[in-house]
């Protein structure tokens, strides 16, 4: 076993709604090794952002444990949690709404330093120096220190969000769709920056995205979520070369490759998405699955290790045995 920095056990988050309980995150389990990146993919509404926020306890989980460096953060009191937040940070998707429009770059980046008394007794000039150092790390020109967010473009704003997260010297950062709102040429700049920072500072990332090409580029391990649950989990290479779950297959087949003739017909998903409100006790993907059988109605399939490091939640895929292969119309590769 390597050096596990974060372990999530049976994490659940239910929201009350007028029509019943929304099972946003429903029994998620995984761990991340120090210095690695875990990619979390899934479509809108699969619970990936809720998961990221539960891990930082920005929203209170309904059930389960989040163990960060040996301590269950769900059991910490307010003071302990504040202490821990220095180690765990988040970068948000929208660099427009996640920065206070009435604060300057200096104020935004120095706020966590001052709030957490990271530089107790330091003079204003010393704090400013630290901010300049952080700005340099993320590649924002010094002259912008007194600018307001609206004066900057999306890429620079996202860099400020990153600098703010780095101000605490965190060990672990949840990146919630950090490049989705950016143009491709800027997106690549930010991805490279995040990679460089990881190398230099030994950061651990949980990288939440809907962009499969990005997650493939960035992650060591990937989990695929569907309606609040993990349907497949594997190292990046294995997942892309040998996807097993029918949902993962459909997802991968829908990636559009920027190459002439690179796009075969994708697997079309039919049917209605199962409602996340009080879902029935059966496979949540069954209604859209081309290969469903009676077994799929027999409860929620557990996440099983079907080959080393490759986990799948499907009634028809068991260690050493893939019943889907015998079904009509089975597509082998992803």
């Amino acid at each position: 076993m390597g050096d596990t920095i974060l372990e999530v056990r049976n994490l659940k988050k239910y929201f009350k709604s007028p029509r019943g309980m929304v099972h946003a995150v429903d029994g998620v389990q995984f761990s991340i090794e120090r210095g690695q990146t875990l990619g979390v993919v899934g479509e809108s509404g699969c619970g990936k952002s809720t998961l990221g926020r539960c891990i930082l306890r920005l929203i209170e989980p309904t059930e389960g444990e989040v163990i960060f460096e040996g301590r269950d953060i769900c059991k910490l009191n307010k003071r302990e949690l504040k202490e821990l937040r220095k180690d765990m940070q988040i970068i948000f998707q929208d660099p427009f709404s996640s920065l206070n429009p009435r604060k300057t770059v200096l104020e935004i980046i120095s706020e966590p330093i001052i709030f957490n008394k990271l530089m107790k007794g330091a003079s204003k000039a010393e704090i400013e120096n630290r901010v300049l150092e952080l700005m340099d790390t993320v590649g924002i020109a010094e002259r912008l220190i007194n600018s307001y967010p609206h004066e900057l473009d999306g890429g620079r704003r996202q860099r400020i969000g990153i600098a703010r997260a780095l101000a605490m010297n965190p060990k672990f950062i949840v990146c919630d769709e950090p490049v989705s709102a950016l143009d491709v040429s800027i997106q690549a700049q930010i991805l490279n920056l995040l990679k460089k920072l990881q190398k230099e500072m030994g950061l651990t990332y949980m990288f939440i995205t809907h962009d499969l090409a990005v997650v493939h580029y960035f992650s060591n391990d990937i989990i695929v979520m569907y309606l609040g649950q993990i349907v497949e989990k594997a190292p990046s290479e294995i997942l892309f070369n040998n996807p097993l779950h029918p949902y993962t297959k459909a997802l991968l087949s829908a990636i559009l490759v920027p190459k002439v003739g690179g796009n075969k017909d994708s697997i079309q998903l039919r049917g209605e998405v199962t409602s996340p409100i009080d879902p029935p006790d059966e496979c949540r993907f069954a209604k859209r699955c081309d290969y469903r059988c009676e077994a799929c109605e027999a409860g929620n399939p557990p996440l099983l290790e079907v080959e080393p490091n490759h986990f799948v939640a499907c009634h028809c895929i068991k260690p050493g045995e893939n019943l889907l292969k015998e079904r009509e119309g089975y597509v082998s590769a992803g």
Binding site: S185, A188, L191, N192, H216, Y217, E237, F240
Partner: peptide
């Protein structure tokens, strides 16, 4: 060059 290439992992992105 800014796009991650699915078929080739590990190649660095070259942003503009």
């Amino acid at each position: 060059n800014s796009l991650p290439d699915i078929s080739k992992k590990g190649t660095d992105l070259k942003p503009i």
